[in-house]
């Protein structure tokens, strides 16, 4: 694990990065005083290359490339323990969301490639059916990640117990719902 090693070279920070993260997340990252409580409580910290408090510091310093290419933003489970305990009341999980959006928008390499695939497969399933069709979702996700047999051993038992729908859900007014979801992109562009 290369925890803080990449922070050692003293690069110039990227101008406006901190401000952009603050604007996108609605959180005041600048007031973080590095108490480390977020990292102490983070259940996934052990697997991250940058601890949550280190990530906050790098955002303050404007080290955009280090931040947007780390594994931390993709491993964060959104459990909100950090945000709940932060003595400066920074919504750290919201900062993570804003960083993920920025990393995708600006095509940064993704260290945990399954996560954006999980997100996009889920969203396209939802756009198509209005509700998540779990069987279809897992099938497409496994195809896209190449982990074809993942969780397949659980399927027969679940089918037998009536816990896996073979057919997608059907709800009325899907046209209207699809249009509504499409408007999200339009409003975002405005």
């Amino acid at each position: 694990m290369r925890r803080s090693s990449r922070v050692t070279d003293h690069k110039m920070g990227s101008a406006g990065f901190l401000e952009q993260v603050e604007a996108d997340s609605g959180e005041k990252v600048r007031i973080c005083y590095q108490c480390g409580k977020c990292s102490a409580g983070c259940p996934v910290a052990y697997s991250m290359d940058l601890l949550p408090n280190q990530l906050m510091r790098l955002v303050q310093l404007g080290l955009k490339d280090e931040v947007l290419s780390c594994s931390t933003i993709w491993l964060c489970a959104s459990c909100e323990t950090c945000a709940t305990r932060c003595p400066r009341e920074i919504g750290i999980a919201r900062v993570m969301d804003a960083l993920r959006h920025m990393a995708r928008r600006e095509h940064y390499p993704v260290q945990v490639r399954e996560v954006p695939l999980f997100v996009s497969t889920f969203i396209s399933n939802l756009k198509r059916f209005g509700r998540l069709w779990e069987a279809g979702f897992v099938g497409v996700f496994n195809l896209r990640t190449g982990h074809l047999t993942k969780d397949m051993g659980k399927a027969p038992g679940m089918l037998r117990k009536g816990k896996l729908a073979l057919l997608p859900p059907r709800i009325k007014g899907m046209d209207k719902i699809r249009k509504m979801i499409k408007r999200v992109e339009e409003v975002n562009r405005q």
């Binding site: 959006h101 997100v119 939802l126 709800i171 009325k172 007014g173 719902i177």
Partner: peptide, 13 residues
């Protein structure tokens, strides 16, 4: 005719 809440993937996207 409720629809999916978006769960974690929506706020990540």
């Amino acid at each position: 005719d409720w629809i999916c809440c978006g769960s974690t993937p929506a706020h990540m996207a």
